[in-house]
Nucleic acid binder design. Structure first.
Lengths: 193, 193
DNA sequence: GTCTATAATTCGATAGAC
DNA sequence: GTCTATCGAATTATAGAC
């Protein structure tokens, strides 16, 4: 009907939407889902709180948009099989320190059912499919991915959420040398030693 | 002054206090600190909300009382050194499944600074002192304890909070056989393989 | 597109009767 | 010791002016 001639022209509101998402990620990461208020997010983004509602419908809708996340796992089939563990730890550390979205999701997942569901999706779909190796059953693959998730999320929880001093102070490469072999065993080893 | 002759006589209010604490642990474990309301806790305990305030002063005070926790770590000096890992995993699993206080603390620690501080205290004081072995420096001991905490808390987070299916469905002894060796290496091994 | 004003809840906390 | 009543503050969400 009244479609504009240039559908790809950036709308003026895009900048506002982006500012809202950036502020939302910060607040959700710092305070969790319940304590992060739309008012505070709007104040950070220098806009009116009602704009948040207009653009994202509800607080849940805002969180869903702000917590969109891709682990960006590398193609593990081209990684030497004996270096899978250290590759994953290094990748996750970089991914975690460079994007606060994952911290926001982690904090919110503790109390918000929707965030927990999204967390399950990410670590079930993205991680499980990335570590799937031909020749092993689904149950075994899922279990290996679950164990990897437990150590990765435990690392993030102690380092970024609870901030246990020894886990905060340690150098990233030191973490790689300790946790890399753990993931390696979860991915390619057997239970027992 | 007017001290009663039998100071050890149980007061009638003790039963009420205990009921409040039990309900509080359930709610904090299920909903986290912010979503658990004093009104809901009082309803579960079949008492008036104002009683909670009277007995515990504030919501923070109630949480502090409800989240009192002891890991009850066994004496690790009598455990054969090569079985430290599996012993710890088995102990933590039993401790976690048998007492929802730890789940309440874990959920609350994600968003409540006081709960996070308590979590740090538990895993710094109780765990670090339990794994302290003579002859190694403080920094190394603290790092080993931190790594153990990261895997234990990651196990709890994925199994009891996020409820990742492969971590929920797996048998406890299967977890012991996978995670036990991890803790063993964190406690007595070296970085690298 | 942006903002003011406010509706409708809900919460923690307090005062005080019995 | 227990309960009723309520305060004051904060929240999400909506209606509508400009």
């Amino acid at each position: 009907m009244a479609a504009p001639a240039r559908p790809t022209q950036p709308r003026r509101s895009d900048a506002t939407r982006a500012a809202i998402l950036r502020a939302a990620r910060e607040r959700f990461a710092a305070d969790g889902y319940e304590r992060a208020t739309i008012r505070a997010i709007a104040a950070d983004a220098r806009i009116d709180p009602s704009m948040v509602m207009r653009y994202y419908g509800s607080k849940e809708g805002l969180f869903a948009a702000a917590a969109e996340f891709d682990l960006r796992l590398p193609d593990l089939t081209v990684v030497p099989s004996e270096r899978l563990g250290e590759t994953l730890v290094r990748h996750f550390l970089a991914r975690w320190e460079g994007d606060e979205t994952l911290v926001a999701l982690l904090r919110a997942a503790s109390t918000n059912p929707g965030a927990a569901e999204r967390m399950r999706g990410i670590f079930t779909d993205q991680l499980a499919s990335a570590v799937a190796t031909s020749g092993t059953g689904e149950t075994v693959t899922a279990r290996r991915a679950g164990l990897v998730a437990s150590q990765i999320l435990g690392l993030a929880f102690t380092r970024y959420i609870v901030r246990l001093p020894p886990m905060v102070d340690v150098e990233p490469e030191e973490l790689v040398s300790w946790i890399g072999p753990t993931l390696q065993r979860y991915l390619t080893g057997r239970p027992g030693n």
